[in-house]
C-alpha cells in the first residue's frame, strides 16, 4: 500500500466524529418533530421525521463504511467473491442511498439500463462503495446524477457521474496520496482486493464524463 498523507486511524476518527454529528442532527429533528406534534402541526412533524430517518440511514451507512475501513486498516482481507447479479447490486445500493426530500427536488437521478450479467464480487462491500459514491454525488451535483453498470472488455465497470464541480485536482492527479475520506479509501482498497485471474480491480476518479462533473469509476475484473 502506498504511503498515505493522513494516517488511516485519523481518517476513521474524523469519520466517527462526522457520524456523531449526523446522529445529533437527527436527534434534534426528532425533538422538534415531537414539539410540532404536540402543537398539532402534523405535516411539519412528518417532514422532520423523514429527514431524521434519512440522517440515521446515512449514519448507518457511514458506520458500516468505517467498520470496513477499520478491517482494511488492520490488513485483514474482508473481500469474499460470490456471484452477484449486477442489476441486483445496483438496485441494492440505490435502496440504501435514497435521496432526501431536498435532494429529490434538486437532483434528477438517472440509471442506465439494467445490466444482465452476473459477476464475482463482494456484494456488501461493493454496495457500500456505491452507496458512498451516490451520497457524495448527491452532495455535489447541481441537478443530475447518472449511475451505470456494464461489462466492457472483461471488466465490470460501475460509474457514478454528476454535474457538480468535480473532484479537486489533488484527488484526480495523486489518487494514491490523496486526502480522501473514509469512503474513497475503502473504495480504493476494496477494488484492489477484487482479484481474478491475475488481475485486480481499481478505482478511477476523473472529471468530465456524461455531465461534466465528477466521475467515480469502479473497475472489477
Amino acid at each position: 500500500m502506498p504511503h498515505q498523507d493522513t494516517p488511516i486511524v485519523d481518517v476513521i476518527a474524523s469519520g466517527v466524529h462526522d457520524t456523531k454529528n449526523v446522529l445529533f442532527d437527527a436527534l434534534m429533528r426528532i425533538g422538534v418533530a415531537a414539539h410540532e406534534v404536540s402543537g398539532n402541526r402534523r405535516d411539519e412533524a412528518l417532514d422532520l421525521l423523514k429527514d431524521a430517518g434519512a440522517a440515521v440511514e446515512k449514519a448507518t451507512n457511514r458506520l458500516s463504511t468505517l467498520l470496513s475501513a477499520y478491517r482494511l486498516a488492520r490488513h485483514e482481507n474482508p473481500v469474499v467473491l460470490m456471484p452477484v447479479l449486477v442489476g441486483d447490486l445496483v438496485e441494492y445500493a440505490a435502496l440504501r442511498s435514497p435521496p432526501s426530500a431536498q435532494d429529490q427536488s434538486r437532483v434528477h437521478v438517472v440509471r442506465s439500463e439494467v445490466c444482465p450479467d452476473t459477476w464475482l464480487l463482494d456484494r456488501e462491500l461493493v454496495a457500500d462503495c456505491l452507496v458512498n459514491a451516490t451520497l457524495n454525488a448527491l452532495r455535489f451535483a447541481v441537478s443530475r446524477i447518472r449511475i451505470s453498470a456494464a461489462v466492457e472488455n472483461g471488466w465490470l465497470v460501475i460509474k457514478v457521474e454528476d454535474d457538480g464541480p468535480g473532484f479537486s485536482p489533488e484527488l484526480t492527479s495523486h489518487p494514491a496520496r490523496m486526502q480522501s475520506g473514509v469512503g474513497l479509501f475503502v473504495a480504493r482498497r476494496v477494488a484492489a482486493l477484487h482479484r481474478q485471474h491475475g488481475r485486480h480491480g481499481r478505482l478511477i476518479l476523473e472529471n468530465g464524463g456524461a455531465y461534466g462533473g465528477a466521475v467515480f469509476t469502479l473497475m472489477l475484473p
Binding site: 474482508p78 469474499v80 460470490m82 463482494d122
Partner: peptide, 9 residues
C-alpha cells in the same frame, strides 16, 4: 455481522 460473507463462503 459485517463479516458474514466469510461465514457463508
Amino acid at each position: 455481522e459485517r463479516g458474514y460473507e466469510q461465514v457463508i463462503s
